[in-house]
Structures are given as structure tokens and as C-alpha cells.
Amino acid sequence: MTPDRQIALVDLLDRLLGEGAVITGDITLSIADVDLVQISLRALVASVGALG
């Protein structure tokens, strides 16, 4: 694992969005709307090339 390696954003987002320990409760805030963020980030990926 080379920390500085440029990881393909699409692979990163597969893991960062919708995965990960999900904590519910009123002391936890998440980014405004995870679904909306997911759509936005997918759009970002599409705009820079899906396999970039």
C-alpha cells in the first residue's frame, strides 16, 4: 500500500459511499444528504473519465 499513490476516484468512491460503519443517532451529522453527495461524486467521476 503506497499512501501517495493516486487512487482512481471511482474505486475510492465505491468504498467511501454507502460502505463503512454507519452510526445513527442525534449526535452524528453526516454530509447534508449522502444520496445527493453520491450523485454529485458520480457526476464528478463521469466528468473526469469513468476509469480515471
Binding site: R15, L16, G20, A21, V22, I27, L29, I31
Partner: peptide, 22 residues
């Protein structure tokens, strides 16, 4: 154990509470 992207807690006591509760 990674948290989902964008998880924010209100202050240290909030984080401690989550660690204890879960």
C-alpha cells in the same frame, strides 16, 4: 473500521458517547 465519508460528531464527548454506546 472506517466510518462512512462525512461523519461528523459534535465534540469529544459526542465521540466518546458513540464509542461507549456501540
Amino acid at each position: 473500521l472506517p466510518f462512512r465519508l462525512g461523519t461528523v460528531h459534535l465534540g469529544r464527548s459526542g465521540v466518546v458517547g458513540v464509542l461507549r454506546d456501540r
